[in-house]
């Protein structure tokens, strides 16, 4: 048994929860790995906030088109059915609630679903926010993909965020390497545990009240 999932496995796990027909925005960084994990043959429409629906994977070498970039300014391709639009329309799609899911990275998520992912607040840091605040409040479902712990071993799930906020009470689910958490009115609910992580481990690591809906007890024999 292991402590949890690696990045690619976590991306694959998140991809399983994206239904055919969904319009999805994958944030810069780790969430972009989810694109490669989406089941082949399902029509899932990727939105990129710089102005495209129907975004395809990276182009083959030598076929890079500088007019065709994703939000991370990486070269991408266009799939059949794709469309282009200007920035005000693109962010209207978010703000107007037309995107089904967005998946973002995080510095911290509070137990109420507050998100901090744009600024460490360090005095010498150059702030850059991009579309993070619009995504955080715009999509119908805002999911976070992150390691549970920082490199220093601090929990990214917290009672209240100490970093500057990206959005207030906006996150609905947090996928971490150790477990999946749903944000509910009654606090965080653990819906799935990865590896040999236990509820008690999570309570100790995060220092939070957690409700158990993992079904670990019922499934223990099946999974071992």
């Amino acid at each position: 048994m292991s402590a949890g999932l690696d990045r690619a496995a976590l991306a694959a796990r998140i991809a399983q929860d994206i239904a055919e027909g969904s319009v999805v925005n994958l944030g810069i960084g780790a969430p972009t790995l989810i694109a490669d994990a989406l089941p082949a043959g399902l029509e899932i429409i990727l939105h990129t906030e710089n102005g495209m629906l129907g975004m395809g994977p990276r182009p083959a070498a030598g076929r890079i088109d500088p007019d065709l970039l994703n939000a991370g300014k990486q070269p991408v391709t266009e799939l059949p059915g794709a469309s282009y639009f200007h920035h005000a329309d693109s962010f209207g799609m978010m703000r107007g609630g037309h995107l089904d899911i967005c998946v973002l990275g995080a510095f911290q998520v509070s137990e109420h679903g507050d998100l901090a992912n744009w600024h460490t607040g360090a005095p010498d840091a150059i702030p850059a926010v991009g579309g993070a605040m619009d995504l955080a409040i715009g999509a119908k479902h805002v999911w976070v993909m992150t390691d549970l712990l920082t490199r220093d071993g601090a929990s990214k799930l917290v009672t209240e965020c100490t970093y500057p906020l990206t959005g207030v009470r906006c996150v609905s689910r947090v996928y971490t390497d150790r477990a999946v958490f749903d944000v509910t009115a009654g606090g965080l609910v653990v819906t799935e545990l990865f590896g040999d992580t236990t509820l008690d481990d999570l309570r100790e690591l995060a220092g939070l009240e957690l409700r158990d809906a993992s079904g670990r007890h019922e499934n223990e024999e099946m999974r071992s």
């Binding site: 920035h87 693109s90 962010f91 209207g92 926010v129 579309g131 605040m133 715009g138």
Partner: peptide
């Protein structure tokens, strides 16, 4: 002046 991207566009 830092402006969130969607606010900038709008």
């Amino acid at each position: 002046e830092l402006v969130p991207q969607g606010n900038l566009a709008e």
